[in-house]
Deep mutational scan, measured.
Amino acid sequence: RLHIEVEGTELMKKLVEEAKRRNLNVRAKVENGKWIIEID
């Protein structure tokens, strides 16, 4: 499991799109103003 903290929506969208393209499980949520992304 990969755990990433990202500031900025554009970067988050790119990460999520790339993960979906590779058929990975992606969860994204906002915590303290940062995107928290978990990829399995």
Results as ranks from 00 to 15, higher is better:
Asn25Arg: 12
Trp35His: 04
Arg27Pro: 00
Leu15Gly: 00
Asn23Glu: 06
Val6Lys: 03
Glu7Phe: 15
Glu5Thr: 11
Glu10Ala: 06
Arg27Asp: 07
Arg1Thr: 13
Lys34Gln: 10
Asn23Ser: 09
Lys20Asp: 03
Glu5Gly: 05
Glu10Trp: 03
Val6His: 04
Ile37Leu: 04
Val16Ser: 03
Gly33Leu: 03
Val16His: 03
Trp35Asp: 02
Leu2Lys: 09
Arg22Asn: 13
Arg21Lys: 13
Leu24Tyr: 01
Lys34Arg: 13
Glu18Thr: 05
Val16Asn: 02
Val26Ala: 04
Gly33Gln: 03
Leu24Ala: 05
Arg27Val: 14
Arg22Val: 09
Lys13Trp: 05
Trp35Leu: 12
Glu38Gly: 00
Ala19Gly: 04
Leu2Glu: 07
Val16Lys: 04
Trp35Asn: 03
Glu18His: 07
His3Arg: 15
Asp40Met: 11
Glu17Leu: 06
Leu15Gln: 01
Arg1Ser: 12
Arg1His: 14
Val26Lys: 00
Trp35Gly: 02
Val6Ser: 04
Asn23Pro: 00
Asn23Leu: 05
Asn23Ala: 03
His3Glu: 12
Glu18Asn: 08
Glu7Tyr: 13
Glu10Lys: 08
Arg1Val: 14
Ile4Asp: 04
Leu2Gly: 06
Glu10Arg: 05
Ile37Lys: 00
Arg27Thr: 15
Lys34Met: 11
Glu5Val: 15
Glu18Lys: 07
Ile39Arg: 00
Val16Arg: 02
Gly33Val: 00
Thr9Phe: 15
Lys20His: 11
Ala28Ile: 15
Asn32Pro: 00
Lys34Gly: 06
Lys13Pro: 02
Arg22Gln: 12
Val30Ala: 11
Ala28Pro: 01
Leu2His: 10
Lys20Pro: 00
Val6Thr: 07
Arg22Ile: 08
Lys14Asn: 06
Leu11Asp: 09
Glu17Gln: 08
Glu5Gln: 10
Ile4His: 06
Asp40Glu: 13
Arg21Gln: 09
Ile39Ala: 01
Asp40Lys: 05
Ile37Asn: 02
Asn23Met: 03
Glu7Asp: 11
Leu15Ser: 00
Asn23His: 12
Val26Ser: 01
His3Gly: 08
Asn32Ser: 03
Val26Trp: 05
Glu38Pro: 00
Met12Phe: 06
Lys29Ala: 09
